[in-house]
């Protein structure tokens, strides 16, 4: 169990590319933190620096109370689960799980007992003598988990561990990993590009973009109060609607649209207005005209894709609501409106 703190961590590759800008944050003991962002945003680099697989250009990394900048990965008391699982193909499941313990000079009897325990916990007991090639994707994933769990490390690191699984299995493993982490109480850092994974698994999410932290917060904070237009459009499916507008004196006017809407904030100038698709209500007496182009049926709800004054817009309605293509009137819940600076994209 350990707290992990990054103080002014920065990564510049020898070719001059800055993968991670100076970042600082602390992960509490037992916390499940998800690093999320599009590919190339530096999330994997950050994880690999924590693991010790990548050198830290600048800054201090602490696991527990120990500065580990120059500590070998083997001595950082961490365990990592890789995207392709990185199981040793020529070893049985038993040997795969026990390899780390064996290298640390654990007595054979103890290894056997610990491997059995881990296998039982992960429902792998009957596969212990198989080789990875004889296992299904989900089982391989579990072996990779077993390899991490068996050493009882201070910190779990996950590098997109579910992206090689099919959708159904992914949902199931998501829950299993989360439950396992809860039960063991081990601090975990999880990297993913899938915002659903981030939302469902994290205690706290760190959203990264182009090597920079955009926002740190609980899933609910990130979803409801995105710190920037990037976070707003990255988190949530469908993403938050972002429309250009002019604002002044407690009112906002959508560009290309003549009507004024009242807003609580007072700010004057160009803004980007954000609203979640589920915070829009179809309303015959609504103040905004919305042109529906496409109806997307999702079972539990329906998505209406279209535009407000030629700016793309999406509305989510319940499965019992009716809608058809063409012009319709909507109301935006005023308390759900989020305003961002048009130039910087930062929250106002």
């Amino acid at each position: 169990m350990a707290q992990v703190s990054l103080e002014g961590i920065r990564k510049v590759y020898p070719n001059g590319f800055q993968a991670v800008e100076t970042t600082s944050f602390t992960i509490q003991d037992g916390e499940f933190v998800v690093l999320v962002g599009p590919s190339g945003c530096g999330k994997s680099t950050l994880l690999r620096m924590i693991a010790g697989l990548e050198d830290i250009t600048e800054g201090t990394l602490k696991i527990g109370d120990r500065v580990v900048n120059d500590v070998d990965p083997a001595d950082r008391d961490i365990a990592m689960v890789f995207q392709n699982y990185a199981l040793y193909p020529h070893m049985t499941v038993r040997k795969n799980i026990g390899y780390g313990l064996k290298n640390r000079g654990t007595p054979t009897a103890e290894i056997a007992a610990k491997v059995e325990d881990a296998a039982k916990m992960l429902n792998l007991a009957e596969y212990l003598d198989r080789k990875p090639a004889q296992l299904s994707g989900g089982q391989r994933q579990r072996v990779a988990m077993g390899r991490a769990v068996v050493r009882d490390p201070a910190l779990f690191l996950f590098d997109e561990p579910l992206s090689n699984l099919d959708a159904k299995l992914r949902n199931q493993m998501r829950i299993e990993i989360k439950a396992l982490q809860r039960r063991l109480g081990t601090t975990a850092v999880y990297v993913t590009h899938d915002q659903v994974e981030a939302m469902t698994m994290a205690d706290r999410i760190i959203v990264l973009n182009a090597g920079k932290i955009e926002q740190i917060g609980t899933p609910s904070e990130i979803y409801h109060n995105p710190a920037s237009t990037f976070v707003a459009s990255f988190m949530g499916a469908p993403p938050m609607n972002l429309i250009e507008a002019e604002m002044g004196q407690g009112q906002v006017r959508i560009n290309g649209y003549d009507q004024l809407l009242p807003v609580p904030e007072t700010y004057a100038g160009s803004v980007t207005m954000g609203i979640r698709p589920e915070d829009v209500v179809l309303d015959d007496r609504g103040s905004v005209t919305f042109r529906v182009d496409i109806l997307e049926e999702l079972g539990a709800h329906r998505l209406l894709h279209g535009a407000i004054a030629d700016q793309p817009f999406t509305v989510m309605i319940g499965k019992d609501d009716t809608a058809e293509t063409g012009e319709t009137r909507i109301t935006l819940k005023p308390e759900a409106l989020r305003l961002f600076d048009k130039a910087t994209g930062q929250k106002l």
Partner: peptide, 14 residues
Amino acid sequence: VPEELAEAARIDGA
């Protein structure tokens, strides 16, 4: 040979 294999082994203390 996938690079992760070497990394996994490194973390496993090999």
